[in-house]
Simulated assay, not measured.
Amino acid sequence: MLQFDASPAAILARLIRCPSVTPAEGGALQELEIMLESLGFAVERPVFREDGTPDVENLLASAGDKGPHLAFAGHTDVVPPGPDSDWRHPPFSAAVDGSEMFGRGTVDMKGGIACFLAAVARVLAKGPPPGRISFLITGDEEGPAINGTVKLLRFAAEKGERFDACLVGEPTNPNAIGDMIKIGRRGSLSGTLTVEGRQGHVAYPHLAENPVRGLVTLLDALHAEPLDRGNERFQATNLEATVLDSGGVASFNVIPARASASFNVRFNDEWTPDTLKAEILRRLDEAASIQRLRADRNDPIRYRVEWKEPPSDAFLTRDEKLVGILAGAVEAVTGRTPELSTSGGTSDARFVKDYCPVAEFGLVGRTMHMANERVALSDLDTLTEIYELFITRWFAAFA
C-alpha cells in the first residue's frame, strides 16, 4: 500500500516547496528519496566535487532485478525565481490558482519528474517491476553541469548499471502536450575572441592601434557566410556574439589596448567540435592576414581565441523502439502525432547519449525560467498517462 499521495499534482507540490535553486539540494532529493523508497527503490545520493565548482548532490534510484533497463533522467535544481513581487503567488508555495499550479520548476523540470514517478507508481501497483527501472536525478543541470548527470552516469556505470534506453523529462512541447519529442540536439561550442591593439588618445590615432576595428572585422568574417544551410535532421548552424568588452576603459577619448567578444555556436551534425574550431580559425586567419588595424600599418590583426567549457556534440537518436513506442504512446493519449525534433538548446541528454539511446518528452515549456512559471493540472494528468503507457509498452516490446 502506498505511503504517499502518488497523484502527479501532489508529488509536484512536495517538490516545488523545496527551494532547490541551483546548486542547492533544498530538500527536493530528500523528498524523492522518501517516495522512491516507499515504492521499493534502492536509493543512493552521491555528492560530486571538482575544484572551482560547487559540490552537487545527486540521486540514483533503481528497482527490479533483471530484464530490460529503462532509465528516467532529470533535474531538481531550478533557476533563481527573482523578486517575489514579480510572482502572483510565492515561487515555492506550489499554489493552485484555478486550473494551474504556480511555482519555480513546475515545468522545468520538477513537473516531468513528478509525472514519471506517478506513472511508475501506477505501473508498480499492478505488480512487480516489468524489468529494471532507474531514476537519474541531478542538482546541476541549471548550473555548470560538471558535477551532475555526466558524473552520475559514470558512477552508475562503475556500479555495473547498463541502460537499454533513457527518457529525459525536459519540457519539450511548445504549445500543447503531444506537440514534440526531442530525438537529438545540436552541439554547442563557446569561445572568446580577443584582438590586441595599442592604447592611446583618440585625438592621436597614429600613435595607437584600435583593437575594436580589428574585432569588428573578424566578427564580420565569422558572420559573412553561413556555416551551413542545415539538413533534413537539423536546422542550420548559427554563431552568435554574446558579450563585447574593451577592457573597461571608462572614457570616450581613450583607445583601448584590447577588445574581446564572447561567442557561442549551436551546430548540427555536419560538424564536430574539432572541424568547427578549424573552420572558425581558418576564417579568422584569412581575415586577419588581409586586414589591418589601420590602413597605414602593415602588420596583420593580432588575435587569439580561448575555447571555453567542454563543447557538446550534436547527436541524433535512431532507436526505433524507444522513439516509436514513445511517439505511439503520445498519439494514443493525445490524438496528436508529435514532431520528432532536434531544435532548441542543449540538455543533459547530451551526456546520456554516450550510454544508451535517449529521447526527451515532457511538459509545455512556455513559462520555463519566467516569473509565474506554472503548469496546467490537466497537463500533469496527461503526461502521467503518456508515461504510464510508454513504460508498459516499452517493457512489453522485450517480451
Rank of each mutant, 00 (worst) to 15 (best):
residue 8 P to D: 09
residue 11 I to P: 02
residue 13 A to N: 02
residue 30 Q to N: 11
residue 32 L to Q: 14
residue 35 M to D: 11
residue 39 L to V: 11
residue 56 V to G: 04
residue 58 N to I: 10
residue 58 N to M: 06
residue 59 L to I: 10
residue 60 L to D: 07
residue 61 A to Y: 04
residue 73 A to L: 04
residue 74 G to A: 09
residue 79 V to C: 00
residue 84 D to I: 11
residue 85 S to A: 15
residue 85 S to L: 09
residue 86 D to L: 07
residue 98 G to S: 05
residue 99 S to P: 02
residue 100 E to G: 03
residue 101 M to P: 02
residue 102 F to I: 05
residue 104 R to L: 05
residue 114 A to H: 02
residue 126 K to Q: 15
residue 128 P to A: 14
residue 133 I to R: 07
residue 134 S to K: 10
residue 136 L to G: 04
residue 136 L to A: 07
residue 140 D to E: 06
residue 145 A to M: 02
residue 146 I to K: 14
residue 153 L to R: 03
residue 154 R to E: 15
residue 162 R to T: 14
residue 168 V to I: 13
residue 169 G to A: 13
residue 169 G to E: 06
residue 169 G to N: 05
residue 171 P to C: 03
residue 176 A to H: 11
residue 177 I to Q: 06
residue 180 M to D: 09
residue 181 I to L: 15
residue 186 R to P: 01
residue 187 G to D: 11
residue 192 T to E: 15
residue 198 R to V: 14
residue 199 Q to H: 10
residue 203 A to F: 12
residue 206 H to I: 09
residue 209 E to R: 12
residue 210 N to L: 07
residue 213 R to F: 12
residue 215 L to G: 07
residue 217 T to E: 13
residue 221 A to G: 03
residue 224 A to Q: 12
residue 235 Q to S: 13
residue 236 A to H: 05
residue 239 L to P: 04
residue 243 V to N: 02
residue 243 V to E: 07
residue 246 S to P: 04
residue 250 A to Y: 11
residue 252 F to D: 12
residue 260 S to V: 10
residue 263 F to M: 00
residue 265 V to C: 07
residue 265 V to W: 08
residue 279 E to R: 06
residue 279 E to P: 02
residue 283 R to C: 01
residue 283 R to G: 00
residue 284 L to M: 06
residue 284 L to T: 03
residue 286 E to G: 00
residue 286 E to R: 10
residue 286 E to I: 00
residue 297 R to V: 06
residue 314 A to T: 09
residue 316 L to N: 03
residue 317 T to Q: 09
residue 327 A to R: 12
residue 328 G to I: 10
residue 332 A to N: 14
residue 333 V to Y: 09
residue 336 R to Y: 10
residue 337 T to K: 15
residue 340 L to K: 15
residue 346 T to C: 13
residue 346 T to R: 11
residue 348 D to A: 08
residue 359 A to H: 14
residue 362 G to H: 13
residue 365 G to W: 07
residue 365 G to L: 08
residue 369 H to M: 10
residue 373 E to T: 10
residue 378 S to F: 04
residue 382 T to A: 15
residue 385 E to C: 07
residue 386 I to Q: 11
residue 390 F to W: 13
residue 391 I to Y: 04
residue 396 A to N: 14
residue 396 A to P: 09
residue 398 F to H: 15
residue 398 F to P: 12
residue 399 A to I: 05
